[in-house]
Each structure stands twice: as structure tokens, then as C-alpha cells.
């Protein structure tokens, strides 16, 4: 009885936190469990379904890009590669997740070719395609404003880091040469608008 009640109490707490995230509309992420509050189902560049919850307990670098982007995205990818080298030097492991802005153009096959052409073949790098709704929601929740101008996607330079505890840890933007380390009161949307 006691074990059952305690277990039920834990389930209730998890449920309540999830409902809290839903009710707030995701406009501001709670301080914990960021991965739980993002759209979770994506396709990777092999066409396999990938759930972001699989990255729980791991450090994750998130960014967004589109395959025919020639200005900002190459610089973002280059920065991610620097961060990967830094992690390697420190003996740290991390996941690098690039979500596509334009699911109609950038399907798994496009990302597969993108990775091959740039030698981005490590297993901890993930190029994801989602539905238009999931893409917009992901962008909104992590602070990646964008709009499409025909075949061009207008967006900013931004990398968001989620730590092993599922908390927002840092961001890299064009406005700040150094990493911005999150304070508990920060929200990704506030910092994104400042960067613009």
C-alpha cells in the first residue's frame, strides 16, 4: 500500500509537471526537463524515427538550419564542430542536434547528402526533419525565430545548450562573442529577441 501510494505520488508529480508545460503553451520553458517540453518525434537523416527524450541525461547542443543556406548555417555548423573538438579534448560526450527549418525541402535524403558532403558523419550528430507544426513549435520553444522568403529562410545564428539535467545551460548567438550562461530567470525567447 505504502509503496503503491508513493509510486502513485511520483506518477502524479510527473503528470502534473507535464500538464503544467502544456498549459503554459510552451511559450516559456520550465527550468527543468526541456526535452520533455519539445516536440519529440522526428525523422533523422536515415529516415528513422527519433525521440528527443532519448537524449535525456546527455548534454545536447541544439540548432536549426536548412540545407541550401549558404551564409549563417555554414558558420553555425563550423561553431558546432569547434564545440565538438572542445568536448573531445575535455573527454566529454554530447549530442549535436540540427533541426531543419524547411521540412518540405530538407527531407532525410537531403540531410544525408548534406552530412556526406561536409564530412559530418559522427554518430552523435543528428540532422532531423519534422512536420511543419513540430518545426514551428520547436523553433518557438527554443527561441529560433524564422520566416521564409520563397526558397530562402530568414533566421539568426543561434545554438542552445541543454545540460545533462535537462536544463537550459547556455546559448551562442551572433550578438555575443562569448557564451551566455543561463540564469534561472532567463527564457530562451527573451534572449533570442535581444540577439535580433
Amino acid at each position: 500500500m505504502r509503496a503503491t501510494t508513493t509510486h502513485g505520488y511520483a506518477r502524479f508529480t510527473a503528470c502534473f509537471l507535464l500538464l503544467l508545460g502544456v498549459l503554459t503553451g510552451g511559450e516559456s520553458l520550465s527550468a527543468t526537463d526541456v526535452l520533455q517540453q519539445l516536440p519529440r518525434q522526428w525523422l533523422d537523416d536515415q529516415g528513422r524515427t527519433l525521440d528527443l527524450a532519448a537524449f535525456s541525461g546527455r548534454r545536447v547542443y541544439f540548432t536549426m538550419a536548412y540545407a541550401s543556406c549558404r551564409r549563417i548555417c555554414p558558420m553555425t555548423i563550423a561553431r558546432l564542430q569547434e564545440l565538438q573538438r572542445e568536448a573531445d579534448r575535455n573527454g566529454e560526450s554530447a549530442e549535436f542536434v540540427i533541426v531543419g527549418y524547411d521540412p518540405t525541402e530538407d527531407d532525410p535524403g537531403t540531410w544525408q547528402q548534406y552530412r556526406r558532403n561536409r564530412g559530418l558523419d559522427r554518430d552523435n550528430w543528428h540532422f532531423l526533419s519534422g512536420t511543419a507544426g513540430n518545426t514551428e513549435q520547436f523553433a518557438r520553444r527554443l527561441g529560433f525565430p524564422f520566416w521564409k522568403y520563397d526558397r530562402h529562410v530568414m533566421h539568426e545564428y543561434r545554438i542552445v545548450v541543454v545540460d545533462e539535467h535537462g536544463q537550459l545551460a547556455a546559448e551562442y548567438t551572433a550578438a555575443s562573442a562569448q557564451t551566455h550562461v543561463w540564469a534561472a530567470s532567463d527564457s530562451p525567447q527573451k534572449n533570442s529577441s535581444q540577439a535580433e
Binding site: 507535464l18 500538464l19 502544456v22 511543419a132 513540430n134
Partner: peptide, 12 residues
Amino acid sequence: VAAITAANAARH
């Protein structure tokens, strides 16, 4: 809650 979350994610 799971149903609401799914609908919320799918909502445009």
C-alpha cells in the same frame, strides 16, 4: 495529458 500534448504539438 498525453493526448493534450499531442494535440498541442500538432496545433498550428
